[in-house]
Amino acid sequence: MTLFTTTMKSPVGTLRLYATEDALTAIYMENHKGAPVLVANERKDHPVLEAARRQLEEYFAGERVSFDLPLGPAGTPFQQSVWAALREIPLGATWSYANLARHIGREGSARAVGAANGKNPISIIVPCHRVVGTDGSLTGYAGGVPVKQWLLEHEQRIRAGR
């Protein structure tokens, strides 16, 4: 499978986007903890990468509240179920790991859900930043807790403006 890549500037730093011929597979931040080293062809004119860049720019400008892109993250069936559930968390809202585990029918699996959440390869678009500790605390984030806080505050501003 051939991977294509491009980068874009954003308010949270440079993002590196990856796609196959027909689906977005990953978005990693500059200092993304645990990001794999991927071999990909640089391609700015790739249709999926162009669409992802445009939609992310709209999101950062406060003009987009959801994403409409073909996604193809690689993961186990359990990880896929967690990542699908993340996309159901409304903009500007947060769920705890325990709530997310209950939502996918795996009550008592908050740690496993947290591990799957931490392996989410499509940052921002699959909003793993919307998951917080049971007490509402901002727990770890692969892009760093300050980025997580910025994203949540940005989404609160978008939601307040609607």
Results as ranks from 00 to 15, higher is better:
64 R>F: 00
117 N>K: 11
108 G>T: 00
123 S>R: 12
96 S>V: 12
110 A>Y: 06
119 K>Q: 04
105 G>K: 13
80 Q>G: 08
64 R>W: 00
70 P>K: 13
81 S>C: 01
81 S>Y: 02
90 P>N: 06
135 D>M: 05
93 A>W: 03
61 A>F: 00
76 T>D: 11
118 G>N: 06
117 N>Y: 02
95 W>T: 13
67 F>M: 09
110 A>E: 15
110 A>R: 13
127 P>Y: 10
107 E>N: 04
131 V>S: 08
118 G>D: 03
96 S>L: 05
51 A>K: 15
82 V>D: 10
123 S>W: 10
62 G>M: 09
85 A>G: 08
103 H>S: 11
82 V>H: 04
63 E>W: 02
75 G>R: 10
133 G>M: 14
101 A>P: 02
106 R>W: 03
77 P>I: 12
91 L>V: 08
72 G>V: 02
131 V>K: 08
136 G>M: 14
105 G>R: 06
99 N>C: 05
55 Q>E: 15
88 E>D: 11
74 A>D: 13
52 A>M: 05
87 R>C: 08
116 A>V: 03
102 R>A: 12
58 E>C: 07
82 V>C: 07
102 R>G: 03
47 P>Q: 07
96 S>A: 06
104 I>G: 01
59 Y>C: 14
102 R>F: 02
81 S>A: 15
83 W>A: 00
135 D>V: 08
101 A>D: 01
120 N>Y: 05
132 V>I: 10
89 I>T: 02
133 G>F: 06
85 A>S: 09
51 A>M: 11
77 P>Q: 13
101 A>Y: 02
97 Y>F: 15
127 P>L: 09
116 A>K: 00
98 A>S: 15
122 I>F: 00
133 G>E: 15
130 R>G: 09
105 G>A: 00
94 T>I: 06
49 L>S: 13
132 V>S: 12
113 V>K: 03
50 E>F: 05
120 N>A: 11
127 P>E: 09
133 G>N: 15
80 Q>I: 03
62 G>R: 09
129 H>T: 04
124 I>M: 06
96 S>Y: 03
48 V>L: 03
86 L>C: 04
